[in-house]
Simulated assay, not measured.
Amino acid sequence: MVKVVILHPDLGIGGAERLVIDMALALMSKKHEVTIFTSHHDPTHCFSETKDGTVQVIAKFDWLPRRIFGKFYALCAVMRMIFLALYIRLFFSADVYIVDQVSICVPFLKILSSKKVLFYCHYPDMLLTDRKSFLKLLYRKPLDYLEGLTTSMSDKIVVNSLFTKGVVSQTFSHVKKCEVLYPSLNTSKFENGYEIVCTDINLDSFDFVFLSLNRYERKKNINLALEAMAYVQKNCSERVKCHLIVAGGYDTRVNENVEHHLELEQLSQKLGIHVNTTFLRSISDTTKLFLLRNCTALVYTPSNEHFGIVPVESMYCSTPVIAVNSGGPLETVENSVTGFLCDPSPERVGQAIMQFVERNGLKERMGKAGKKRVQEMFSFEAFTEKLHSFVMELC
C-alpha cells in the first residue's frame, strides 16, 4: 500500500475535479491510501463522492483571498497552493504527491524530502489569459516563468491528451518528457438505474432535445449552441419540435458564472429561441446522467478544449456528440461515426443538428458506436492500471 496525497486548488464541479476524484477512486481500488487536499470544498457544490465520505477530502486555507480588488486571481491561487503544500509537508506524510493544475507548490513538497511528485497538467496556465496591457504582462511574467520552472521540477509530468502534450512541449523549454493519461469514466456510476424525472422540463413534449453541458464560462462558447439552434429553428419545419437544454456548473462566488448565465438568457431572447431553450444550473449527477441518456445529441462548443470529459460521458450513454473540430474532441469523437466534428460556426453546427432531425436511426447508430469507442479507449480499468503503474514507478 502506498500513501498518496493529491493537491487540487478548488474542489468544485468540473472536468478537472472529476478527474481528481477518479484518480482517488482508481488508486483506492488498488488498496492505496488516498487523501485529497484542497483550499476550497463546498458540500453544496461538489461531486457526491467528496460529500458522502467515499473519498477523504481535507480543505485548508479557504480564508485566504481568491482575489485582491477584484483582480490577481492567479497570484492568489499560487499563494493558496503554497500554503497548502507547506501545511502538508509540516503536518502530513505521504509516499507520493500528485499535484493537479498548479505546479508552483511542487518545490515546496520536495523541500528536505526524497518523496516523489507527479504533476498533472491540464493545459499551461500562461496560455489561458491574455497580455493586452503592459501592467498585465509585467504581472504575469514572473508567474509564467515559475510555472515552467516548477513544472519541470516534477518527477513525472502527465497530461490529458496528445493535443496538450504537444502544447506543453512547445510552451515549456524546461520540460523534456511528459506522458498521456486520458481522463476516464468510473463506468459503474453509469450502470446504476437512474430512474428519475427531470422536473425542470418534460422531455417527452419535444421531438428532439439537444444538450449543451459546460460550466457557465465565456471560453466554453455556449453562445454557439444558441446561435446554432436559431439556425435550426429558421431552417426546420415548424411541425418539428426541437429544444435546447443548457446545463452546467454555476458558482455564485464566481462573477463570470453569474454574468454569463444572464448574457445567455438575453441572447436566447434576442435570437427568438427562448421558448425552445431551458437553462439549468449546477445540476446533480443523476440529473446530468438523465439528460445525457435522454437527449438526441450533445452539442459541445469549446474550441481547443484540452480534453473534455463530457463528450466521453455522452458517448458512454449512447448519445452522439456534435463538437468543434479542435483540441481534445479530435481524439475522443470519431467524425461521422460517433458524432460530428464541425467548424465553430452556427451554420456548420446547425447543419449537424439537422442531420439528427432528418435522418432516421442516426442517433441509435452513432450512439452504439460511441459507447463501443469509450469501452475500448477510455475504460476506467485502463486508467487505473496506468495511474497505478506511475505511482509504483515513483515509489
Rank of each mutant, 00 (worst) to 15 (best):
F134A: 13
L135T: 13
K136V: 11
K136N: 12
K136C: 08
K136D: 14
L137I: 07
L137D: 13
L137A: 14
L138A: 13
Y139D: 00
Y139M: 07
Y139S: 05
R140C: 01
K141F: 13
K141G: 03
K141D: 00
K141R: 14
K141W: 11
P142M: 04
P142I: 02
D144H: 07
D144F: 03
Y145D: 05
Y145N: 09
E147R: 08
E147C: 07
G148I: 00
G148A: 07
L149T: 05
T150I: 01
T150Q: 07
T150C: 14
T151N: 03
S152Y: 07
M153T: 10
S154A: 15
D155K: 00
D155Y: 01
D155G: 01
D155W: 00
K156Q: 11
K156W: 03
K156E: 13
V159I: 09
S161F: 06
L162F: 13
L162K: 15
L162G: 14
L162V: 11
F163Q: 00
F163H: 11
F163D: 02
T164H: 04
K165L: 15
K165N: 09
K165Q: 15
K165C: 08
S169D: 12
Q170I: 03
T171G: 08
T171V: 11
T171Y: 05
T171H: 06
F172N: 01
S173G: 03
S173Q: 14
S173P: 05
S173D: 11
H174C: 13
V175W: 04
V175N: 04
V175L: 09
K176D: 10
K177S: 13
C178R: 06
V180I: 08
V180M: 09
Y182V: 02
P183R: 09
S184L: 08
N186P: 00
T187M: 10
K189W: 05
E191I: 10
E191G: 09
N192Q: 14
G193S: 14
G193H: 14
E195K: 15
E195L: 12
E195M: 11
V197L: 09
C198P: 00
T199S: 15
D200L: 11
I201M: 08
D204L: 13
D204Y: 12
S205T: 14
F206V: 05
F206W: 15
D207F: 06
D207V: 08
F210S: 05
L211I: 02
